[in-house]
Computed example of a mutant assay.
Amino acid sequence: MTNSAPIEDVPIGGEVIRLGQFLKFAGLLDSGGHVKEAIINGYVVVNGEVDRRRGRQLQLGDIISFDGRRVRVCP
């Protein structure tokens, strides 16, 4: 899966964050309900692969794609 959108860096102020939390923190989605729906329906891509685990622990450098945007987890 390729995406030519620029990658936005999103500092999280730590080393790990859960996928559901990050989607809201980065401004990709605005509510827990929308996060849950997007993840369950396979609209969220982590490091090039669909991930349906809202509680997945993201690490620094992970790239999350959703709705035409790509964001990278940064310290």
Rank of each mutant, 00 (worst) to 15 (best):
V10G: 05
Y43S: 12
Q59S: 15
Y43T: 02
G14L: 01
L60R: 08
V35Y: 04
S4V: 05
V16L: 05
G68C: 10
I64T: 11
Q21E: 13
V46L: 06
D62W: 09
P11I: 00
F22Q: 07
Q57E: 13
G42I: 04
V44T: 10
R72P: 02
L29C: 07
R52Q: 14
V35C: 07
R54T: 13
I63S: 04
L23T: 03
Q21R: 11
R70S: 13
I40L: 14
G42S: 07
V50Y: 01
I12D: 10
M1E: 08
D30E: 14
A26K: 00
G13Q: 08
L19M: 02
F66H: 15
L23G: 06
V44S: 09
V16E: 14
N41Y: 01
V16G: 05
M1Q: 03
F22I: 00
D9H: 07
I7N: 09
G42P: 05
N47R: 04
E8D: 12
A5D: 04
R56A: 14
D67Y: 13
T2I: 09
G48I: 01
V16T: 15
V73R: 00
E15M: 04
R52H: 07
P75Y: 10
F22A: 02
G13R: 00
F25K: 07
V71N: 08
S65V: 00
Y43W: 11
L19R: 04
D30G: 12
V44A: 06
S65K: 05
R53F: 04
R53V: 02
I39E: 09
S4A: 11
I40M: 12
I63D: 10
S31N: 01
G55C: 04
I12H: 06
C74Q: 14
E49V: 09
Q57G: 01
V35N: 09
Q21L: 03
V46I: 11
K24D: 06
G14M: 01
G48C: 02
R54V: 10
V73H: 02
R18L: 02
G55H: 12
D67P: 00
Q59N: 15
D30T: 11
K24P: 03
D62Y: 11
A38C: 03
I12A: 06
F22M: 01
T2M: 09
L29N: 08
R69D: 12
K24V: 13
P6A: 11
D51N: 15
E15V: 03
E37M: 12
V10K: 12
L23H: 08
G42T: 10
N3Q: 12
H34E: 15
N41T: 13
H34I: 00
H34G: 14
G55R: 03
A38P: 08
R56L: 08
D30Y: 05
V50H: 03
G48L: 00
P75K: 12
H34P: 00
N3Y: 04
G55N: 15
F25N: 03
S4Y: 02
R56F: 07
